[in-house]
Computed example of a mutant assay.
Amino acid sequence: MGNSREQLPVELVDATGVGIGTCTVTEAHTAPGRLHRAFSVQLVDPDGRLLLQRRAPVKTRFASRWSNTCCGHPAPGQRVEEAAVGRLAEELGLTATLTEVGSFTYRAADTGSGFVEHEWDHVLLGTLTDGEPAPDPAEVSDYTWLDPAHVHSAMADDPHAYTPWLSSVLRLVTAARH
């Protein structure tokens, strides 16, 4: 279940992305938030549509919001790509080759839960050529394939329906695909 994930270790990083220690997921996300390593996966299909997921209502941070394909935290010392491939399989039952296309840092407070995201986020891009998503309901409540232009206009119309990191993920994905 999702709550056991909250006790897993994450890697704390400094302002340049260098590892400086570890703490639990819960500790990292307790206000004011501690900068830690994370990843965001974005899958596209051969037509260039984006696979978005709606986070499950039981998620402790930004529940029920639409987001990129999947997110997570590598274990301390774990390769980001390895962690991301594992999360993609766990959350959506999918396999894809992932390539890191950049990283960014952000801080966002979830007013609903009081938790804070403060992450050094590695963005990984992959093309899904085979398979259909099989979401884990503890993680994902829904998914959809959308044209990037539609996603950008929908986010502009209703920003609170989307996770606060999605726009930065899509900026890096768009740059990598052009």
Rank of each mutant, 00 (worst) to 15 (best):
T22H: 13
V25L: 05
V25G: 00
V25N: 07
T26P: 00
A28Q: 14
A28I: 02
H29V: 01
H29T: 05
T30D: 10
T30L: 11
A31E: 15
G33K: 06
R34Q: 14
R34I: 01
L35N: 04
L35W: 07
L35F: 11
A38K: 12
F39S: 04
F39V: 05
Q42G: 03
L43N: 09
D47W: 04
V58C: 11
V58A: 10
T60K: 05
W66A: 01
W66K: 03
S67V: 00
S67R: 00
S67I: 01
T69I: 03
H73V: 03
P74T: 07
P74I: 05
A75C: 02
P76L: 06
Q78S: 09
V80W: 07
E81P: 04
A83S: 15
V85C: 14
G86W: 09
R87V: 06
R87M: 11
A89G: 13
E90V: 14
L92T: 06
T97Q: 10
T97S: 12
T99C: 06
V101K: 09
R107V: 14
A108K: 01
A109F: 01
G112P: 00
S113Q: 07
G114T: 06
G114Q: 08
F115N: 03
V116S: 03
W120Y: 15
D121Y: 02
D121F: 00
H122C: 10
H122G: 02
H122Y: 14
V123K: 07
L125S: 03
L128A: 07
T129K: 03
G131C: 09
E132P: 02
P133G: 07
P137H: 04
P137K: 00
E139I: 04
S141W: 07
Y143S: 06
T144W: 08
W145F: 13
W145G: 01
L146P: 00
V151D: 02
V151I: 08
H152D: 14
H152I: 00
H152K: 12
A154M: 12
M155S: 06
A161S: 13
T163M: 01
T163E: 09
P164Q: 06
L166N: 05
S167I: 07
